[in-house]
Simulated scan of single mutants.
Amino acid sequence: MEGGAVVARARAALGVPFRLHGRDGAGLDCVGLAAHALRLEAPSGYPLRGGEPALVRARLDALLHPVEGPPVAGDLLMMRTGPGQLYLGIWTGAGLVHADAGLRRVAERPGAPPWPVLGCWRR
């Protein structure tokens, strides 16, 4: 899948409400948004906080191609937004589409992510 199609699918979700374990137009979380944009099956049953980066990395490595170096449009980024909190977003080439719990909706943020990037994957 081309990166532009991934970005278009992520942007199509802009404004969808945030909902933990959300998987459709009624609500999405960061995992649901990533699954929607990348056309993947999304796991469920995970907590809002927590998660072992190595386990998440292994799961993503099995589904997507790990990327070294700078991301390109359509890449999936895994970030650490706080202690014990992992977060996923779709890089647009100029910003990040993500399910923002604080804004209570899927939003697009311009510029580099404000959180440490732990990994990058490409479809």
Rank of each mutant, 00 (worst) to 15 (best):
L96G: 00
C30L: 02
G4K: 11
Y87W: 15
P17C: 08
L88P: 00
G22D: 03
G3M: 06
D75S: 13
R59P: 00
S44D: 09
A42G: 02
G111Y: 08
P71A: 15
L96W: 02
C120A: 15
M79P: 02
V67K: 14
V56M: 13
L118C: 13
L14H: 02
V16I: 08
D61N: 13
G111I: 08
E2P: 15
W115E: 10
R11A: 07
L77F: 09
A13Q: 04
L28P: 01
R9T: 01
G82R: 13
C120E: 06
D75V: 03
C30I: 01
W91K: 06
R104I: 08
C30G: 05
V6Y: 00
L103F: 12
A94H: 14
R57Y: 05
R11G: 09
R57D: 08
R9E: 08
M79A: 12
L86Y: 05
G102N: 14
Q85K: 14
P66I: 12
G89L: 04
L40F: 00
H36C: 00
L118P: 00
L118Q: 11
L33R: 01
P43S: 04
A107Y: 06
W121L: 12
T92N: 02
R11D: 03
L64F: 09
E108Q: 15
G84Q: 13
V16P: 03
L96S: 02
A62I: 07
A73L: 07
L60P: 05
D29Y: 00
H21V: 01
L77K: 07
V31L: 04
V6F: 05
Y46K: 02
R105A: 07
E108N: 12
V6L: 04
G69Y: 14
A73D: 07
P116G: 09
M78A: 09
G119C: 11
C30M: 05
A8D: 12
G25Q: 11
P83W: 13
L86E: 02
P66K: 05
P113R: 14
L20C: 10
G74Q: 01
R19S: 04
G51W: 00
D29S: 03
E41F: 03
Q85P: 12
H65I: 14
G32F: 00
H65K: 15
W121H: 11
Y87I: 04
A37C: 05
P71L: 14
D24A: 06
Y87V: 01
P53H: 02
G51R: 01
I90R: 00
L55A: 05
W91G: 02
E68W: 07
A10V: 10
T92C: 04
R80E: 14
R11W: 06
G102I: 15
D100T: 04
V106F: 10
M79C: 09
R80P: 07
D75T: 03
A58W: 01
A35F: 04
L86Q: 05
P71N: 09
P83L: 10
M79G: 04
D61E: 13
V6N: 07
G84C: 10
G102M: 10
